[in-house]
Design a protein around this nucleic acid. Structure first.
Lengths: 146, 146
DNA sequence: CCGCATCCTGGAGGATACTG
DNA sequence: CAGTATCCTCCAGGATGCGG
């Protein structure tokens, strides 16, 4: 984050010396930087149907495959497996297989995975505050299709 | 958010009177609540390819259609129009058409739209901090496909 | 300048059945 | 228990062309 802020300020060339707080204008560069590559990189990871749900569920502690399957209503085995594989590959979830009979596999968040929780909660908070208003607006616009 | 916190605490039945800070366990209920319907509602809105980019661009001030098109590299006219219509319907963006020749149309964020910026920045910050680590992990797992 | 209509493609994700 | 394999559907989103 800091590197990006510095890079941007170098680009614009001023203001650093004045000790100004970053303006909103500068802040949104975090989103718009690289033509959106940075924000897209994270959206690509979490914007599927299940990732955030799995991460939030694992935040309570390690869980086995079946426990996850039960605690996340509506997910198919296929998508649970797939999403867990992606999360594992990205280093957000650690998979531990115990050589037992019957087999036991536990999934747990890595520190990186845990670090995703706060921004996700920020988003969830925003949703809870504003989604009702959004759906009201949406309902209105259905009535006036022009 | 507060309603949901209260609702959850009512559900679990305790702790309110003890003045305890919400635990992480309780927090993630914001994400997992409704079997993920709440978080899904917002992901459905912002997790397309362009929404956040448009919102972040408009945060600097109202812009005309063509200006947006230029400032968001890679977006097609179709997707710009579509996404703007969605944002307008959801009450995140206000569209103002001036009856001039040639036509002039300006798009600006509504207060609701502006309120999306902070959580989006939280996410962007997370991305900038962790995406390098994620991509390193991803590269590793390519080498050991097992 | 601002956009809508149309056609087309890739990939996310569901359903179902099978396996070590 | 913890997956894999296969098939299928749906739609986001790109390309292109026309219209007020």
């Amino acid at each position: 984050m800091c590197q990006y802020r510095r890079a941007y300020k170098r680009h614009t060339g001023v203001r650093e010396a004045q000790g100004m707080v970053m303006s909103q204008y500068e802040h949104t560069c975090l989103i718009r930087g690289d033509g959106g590559r940075t924000i897209r990189a994270i959206l690509d990871r979490i914007c599927n149907k299940w990732t955030l749900l799995i991460v939030a569920t694992l935040d309570r502690g390690a869980l086995r495959f079946t426990e996850l399957h039960q605690q996340i209503p509506g997910i198919s085995q296929r998508m649970l497996t797939l999403t867990l594989r992606h999360l594992e590959r990205d280093g957000l979830v650690a998979r531990t297989a115990y050589a037992e009979v019957p087999p036991r596999v536990e999934y747990a968040l890595t520190p990186t995975g845990k670090s995703l929780i706060p921004p996700a909660l920020a988003l969830a908070g925003w949703a809870i505050e504003h989604v009702p208003h959004i759906e009201a607006s949406r309902a209105l616009h259905q009535n006036r299709p022009g």
